[in-house]
Nucleic acid binder design. Structure first.
Lengths: 330, 330
DNA sequence: CTGAAAGCGCTAACAA
DNA sequence: TTGTTAGCGCTTTCAG
């Protein structure tokens, strides 16, 4: 089996503590360092993180809970986070809860049992019960994208309101007045923010908000297609539409495609996220893109800071800005 | 701090071993079971997997190494695998090596140090050195998508050759003769297979293979766009093109879009993977779709079997079939 | 069926 | 600086 520190001690004739302090940056005489190093090579020693974890009560594991790993928005953030944390010796365990509250709870349990050192979550549920458990045990929590009331932890958010407001403003500039919005589920934080942005944009330009122009999807492709269909059926007078997440953008495009609706002649269109898809569409789509890479960086930075001992610093909320990319769909 | 088994023993008046065997499915008198259960609730006991891992030499951790988490093909497989393994108490640690051999090696080291119980990998490097280390330590390895010579482990593959052959055959049916292929890097297993399929399809129908109709991308969006541009420039006589992965399909579409090439009037097109994108495109794309969900299931099943003790069973290679989805791009 | 005791590989306090 | 020692929380003999 694998060599242990004991073996190193025997091999070098040194004490166990010396070996241990060698690995933990303690003071070891140069000569002994060399001895240890050759012994490591000879015995092919690799430190056992499990044993270390038992002792120190640190697993160097970070739990991640997200609604869907194959939502590109999630995947991009997670890759970035994982990459940075790994450079600091932390492994991330990602659980995809399929936007299901029960599964999310299970995932939190799962991580808790595993004694992760910290938690990163894009929450599905809006009650912060599961998160508090981590905080009570002094394990840092960073929430992505959706703020949760009553839980005192770091957050990385997007300025959803502004994102939508700017997009809608752009449409109004082009003299559109009957502008549809394909929103997310009305109980999700980001959806609410985006709807707020829609309202504000219209009001600021003195336009009326007509609720029948807002159609809620569920952030999935088929949900987006259905929401688009609903708008098309009930509001044939609509001249422009804003879709407020990537999967629904895809769904809406599928529906428009099937009906043969021409963009932008018959309908102006603004989508969300995923530049590549926007470029690959015909015509090229105008979209609002979220800064996933920056979000990932922010998340990693926040949790690392807490893990490195800043347990008491004040809670931080980072709000990042989206980017508007002009295509040919307006 | 959290309660331990010792606390349970004290609370119930039972011995430590009894508590332990309760958790490990041993025989415990009904009465004592009840006692233990109430104590668990009272003390809010949660088993410490770290300690357990130290003792049993099992971490219940599975290392996953993939080239890019935000390649949808990877993400879909991984989600499925993660979901299944979690139901069996295994956590997956995913490392994205960004298609970089050095990073891949680091990821393997990382997992090895962490003492994962098994490894799932979609390899970037073609030498199996890193994998052998796991096998030598009796840790099961499952390779996804790309077979590696000289490493004796389970594999889940796709019938790449047939996938491309069928697509090309479909184009030939429609009287295309100058058919372009946008292939992947020529040193990657799947690319080679796909190129083989291209050759076979042409030969079987008595057509000549013309190397200038094959353009190698690198499985990225920009690579796909460049490869498409190259073909368009050097072979204006080409009447159809087959793109052999999703990201390059996206890239190719971007390029075609920018040049205003009309599909299918000026060029027939077959893409790869991601049905949703195919439906959302205008016109709808014909594509070859890989069975990601089934692949995930197969991977999980194979590794679970090995983890459950079938260490010596013969190496299994599963080859799954792709699906051809007809759109309006031919 | 249950209890006592040893030990997994490591860290950390203390003594030397 | 280095060695000794006592656990971290659990599983697993071995007796009872």
């Amino acid at each position: 089996m694998a060599a242990t520190m004991k073996d190193l001690a025997r091999e070098t004739g040194l004490g166990l503590a010396t070996i241990s302090s060698y690995f933990n940056g303690g003071n070891v005489r140069e000569k002994n360092k060399e001895k240890i190093e050759t012994a490591i090579k000879k015995l092919n020693f690799e430190i056992n993180e499990v044993a270390r974890g038992l002792k120190t009560n640190h697993t160097k594991l970070i739990g991640v809970v997200i609604p869907e790993l194959d939502m590109i928005f999630c995947a991009q953030i997670i890759t970035e986070v994982e990459d940075i944390l790994r450079n600091y010796g932390y492994a991330t365990i990602v659980c995809d809860c399929r936007s299901d509250e029960k599964r999310e709870e299970e995932a939190l349990d799962f991580h808790f049992h595993r004694r992760v050192d910290g938690l990163i979550i894009m929450p599905t549920s809006t009650n912060g019960k599961g998160l508090k458990r981590f905080l009570e045990h002094n394990k840092p929590v960073v929430v992505i994208d959706r703020k949760i009331d009553g839980v005192d932890c770091d957050c990385v958010l997007v300025d959803n309101e502004k994102a939508v407001k700017d997009g809608i403003a752009r449409l109004i500039e082009e003299k559109h007045e009957k502008i549809g919005l394909i929103a997310g589920p009305s109980d999700i934080y980001t959806s609410k923010e985006r709807i707020k942005g829609y309202h504000k944009a219209l009001k600021e330009r003195g336009l009326q908000v007509d609720k029948s122009l807002i159609s809620c999807g569920d952030f999935t492709i088929s949900g987006g297609a259905k929401a688009m269909a609903r708008l098309l059926d009930t509001r044939p007078d609509m001249t422009a539409v804003f879709v407020s997440n990537y999967e629904m953008t895809l769904g809406a495009m599928i529906e428009l495609n099937e009906r043969g609706v021409k963009i932008p002649q018959e309908l102006s269109f603004i989508g969300y996220d995923n530049k590549e898809f926007a470029y690959a569409s015909n015509p090229q789509l105008s979209i609002v893109a979220q800064p996933t890479k920056e979000m990932g960086k922010a998340v990693a930075q926040l949790i690392l800071k807490r893990l490195q001992g800043d347990g008491n610093g004040k809670r931080k909320i980072w709000k990042l800005e989206t980017e508007f990319i002009e295509g040919k769909s307006i």
